[in-house]
């Protein structure tokens, strides 16, 4: 008897997370929330990688996840700094207020 959760379930969950993240990026107007949605998409990919690694019974996917987490941490550091810089200038982080350049 095997009670393990099937890989398909993980992949379905990761797809749902990915689509939620993508919709968040496209629909939200607050820079921090957009950024969180991007992180959600990255984590969806991480979940898929780990689930696939279990399915194939090897470590490559898990290793990949470590690198993705490191990259995501670097992205957070840069992203939050940029959002602070914008807030200092405009007193707002709504991306609809970012329209100094148009044409």
């Amino acid at each position: 008897m095997n009670f393990a959760v099937p890989t398909e379930a993980f992949i379905m969950l990761s797809m749902v997370l990915f689509i939620l993240g993508a919709m968040g990026v496209l629909l939200r107007r607050n820079a921090i929330l957009i950024f969180m949605s991007v992180e959600l998409m990255l984590n969806a990919a991480n979940l898929a990688l780990v689930a696939f690694a279990r399915q194939w019974g090897q470590m490559n996917g898990q290793l990949f996840v470590f690198f993705v987490m490191t990259v995501a941490a670097a992205e957070v550091a840069v992203g939050l700094a940029l959002i602070v810089a914008i807030f200092r200038n405009k007193r707002s982080i709504n991306i609809d207020d970012l329209h100094q350049m148009e044409g």
Partner: peptide, 23 residues
């Protein structure tokens, strides 16, 4: 704030693209 604005736009689009690519 023009430069900061361009940085934030680049960052949001760029990281969105990376996440799509990664998936």
């Amino acid at each position: 704030g023009r430069s900061a604005e361009s940085g934030l736009k680049y960052f949001l689009f760029g990281s969105f693209a990376s996440a799509i690519l990664l998936y």
